[in-house]
Amino acid sequence: MNELLVDRKDDGVVLITLNRTDMRNAMTDTMTAEWRAVMAELRDDRQARCLVVTGAGSAFSSGGDLSWIGERGTEAVPRLRDRMLAFYRTWLAITELEIPTIAAVNGPAVGAGLCVALACDLVYAADDAKLLAPFTSLGLHPGMAATYLLPKRAGARLAAEMLLTGRTVSGREASDKGLVNQSFPKNHLMSETEAIARKIAQNAHCHAPHQSSPQPRPSRPGSRADVGIPGSARDHGLRRHDRGPDRPSGKAHAQIHRLLII
């Protein structure tokens, strides 16, 4: 069974469905590996114009599959940290795509699952969807860039309340408070979201010319860069690697490093 369903439509819209309904679409090792592969494919897909991510069944995602933490209780902290960093970077790779990205939050979006939704450029939710970040109540440091994405979307006060208390926010309240772009009745969520995605894809009406030799690619029409949208979490330092003279240093580098630490 594929834990990610990928539907490439003729109009350039790509629909990814998290498909592990027996675990409420928890982000398992298998799903994470499939996500990594799909993100790599989409980076080079010149036909893709917009990406929509949603969940199968009644949930968007219940977050990371934490079962392995108990199984690895005797493992050294540095190895556990490296594993978590790899997990975060794999899922946050959605911020590296050139095409606009949309989350359709059809049901509960919990912890890391909520963060992946918030990492998209646009977020739409069912009115009765439940959004929560219960890291602290589970004895975990808020990971998956939660301490960046939540205040970026909805401001510091709501972010602090959600992170410190773990309280649940409905899709309707999330829309009222700016955590998501808009909420819809659950039965209308996908049709409304797909209509928005089609509009975005239609705006990207031109194809960049094919290049036979490796060269820096121009931004594709309708991409983030083409319409002036920053690359979300990526451009704010959630991706840390050696970049020669542009590599952040000093205080900025320390801040980036802290965002990635669990």
Rank of each mutant, 00 (worst) to 15 (best):
G111H: 02
W35I: 06
M144P: 07
R239E: 03
I102G: 00
A133W: 04
A104F: 01
A160P: 02
A125S: 09
P100G: 12
A26W: 04
D242L: 04
D176K: 14
Q182T: 08
N181H: 08
A201L: 11
R43H: 14
V53N: 01
A146W: 00
M31Q: 08
H141L: 11
A112M: 07
I261V: 14
N203G: 15
T165W: 06
R20T: 02
Q47K: 14
R24W: 01
A208V: 15
L97N: 02
A204Y: 05
R24D: 05
I229C: 11
T147L: 05
L238G: 04
R8T: 08
E41Q: 15
A145C: 14
S67F: 06
S58P: 00
E34I: 08
A156V: 06
A103F: 01
L118D: 00
G73D: 03
A160T: 11
A93Q: 13
C115W: 04
T193E: 02
K152E: 08
E41L: 12
M39L: 15
L66Q: 15
A109F: 00
Q202F: 07
D242F: 05
R8Q: 12
F135P: 01
D176L: 15
D82E: 12
A201W: 07
T165Q: 13
R220P: 12
R234Q: 10
P209N: 09
G64K: 09
L189H: 03
S191W: 01
I69T: 05
A48H: 11
A104L: 02
A104M: 05
L189M: 10
C115F: 06
S183R: 04
I16K: 03
S232C: 13
R72K: 15
P151F: 06
L132I: 06
F60L: 00
A197Q: 06
P209Q: 08
H188F: 11
V6K: 07
G228A: 12
G113E: 03
A195C: 04
R49V: 03
Y124C: 00
